[in-house]
């Protein structure tokens, strides 16, 4: 589904990613862990197409399309979703209207008709319930005045509505209490199937207790330096990142 080959990226002339290789297959959950400043958020931003980052080398293939050529909205319509670490507030635009516009863009791209108002409302209520958001949330402005937990739930709500093929969760666990974390994880688990994939970016292991990864990667200084199964995450939880830094600092 996703193939990243020798990806190099920089911001304002400063190299951040220094040769990422990664393959994610349908039906799998990959976790990307790493110390602060290792390039985790940059990787997610580059995959989603954020303009400020310049790709200097390498390729990103998504279901046979070289997405580096595509605008962020085209990537989204192809089935890529980024759950933001810091979701944006949009006063004056209701969640219902916002998600309706987004869903209709994706449906149009797939050659599908827009959903009827009734079907849409039904779908929204169902997905809102999945992440523990009350109906009145639909009428409120996008993320305006939301708590940290509500914002993250809203990200997963949008994910559920858009049904992407690949979802990147960027530090979705940050700022969440344990109840919200569990709800968000249950939401993700309910959406997981053999056709889609998840890339979970996190500093801490605790989210991975709930969303169990098939593969765990450790990112350090712009490269993936370790790859293993879920036990690698447990080792990091137990021993921290010092051993990774010690082992790979010569290469850096």
């Amino acid at each position: 589904m996703l193939q990243i080959k020798n990806l190099h990226a920089q911001i304002e002339g400063k190299p951040i990613l220094k040769g990422i290789n990664l393959e994610v297959k349908a039906g799998t959950v990959h976790a990307i862990m790493g110390p602060n400043g290792s390039g985790k958020s940059t990787l997610s931003a580059v995959i989603a197409g954020r303009e400020e980052y310049e790709v200097t080398e390498g390729e990103i293939w998504f279901n046979g399309v070289n997405i580096l050529e595509l605008e962020p909205e085209e990537r989204a319509r192809e089935g890529l979703f980024l759950a933001f670490q810091y979701p944006i507030e949009i006063p004056g635009v209701s969640n219902a209207n916002f998600i309706k516009m987004a869903v209709n863009e994706v449906r149009k791209h797939k050659g599908l008709e827009s959903l009827s108002a009734t079907d849409f409302l039904k779908l929204m209520r169902e997905k809102a319930a999945l992440v523990g958001l009350k109906d009145d949330f639909l009428k409120r402005s996008v993320n305006a005045g939301f708590s940290g937990g509500e914002k993250k739930r809203n990200e997963i709500f949008q994910l559920a509505m858009l049904e992407p093929k690949l979802s990147i969760l960027d530090e979705t666990d940050s700022g969440l209490d344990i109840d919200a974390l569990r709800t968000v994880a249950e939401g993700v688990n309910a959406l997981k199937n053999s056709e889609n994939a998840f890339l979970v970016i996190t500093h801490y292991q605790r989210l991975l207790d709930y969303i169990v990864p098939d593969v765990v990667h450790v990112l350090y200084d712009g490269r993936i330096v370790e790859t293993g199964d879920k036990n690698l995450a447990l080792k990091l939880e137990d021993q921290g990142y010092d051993w990774v830094i010690e082992k790979h600092k010569q290469e850096a």
Partner: peptide, 12 residues
Amino acid sequence: EIFYLQSRGLSK
């Protein structure tokens, strides 16, 4: 803010 909306499939 623009990027957030684009990442949901809306044009610039």
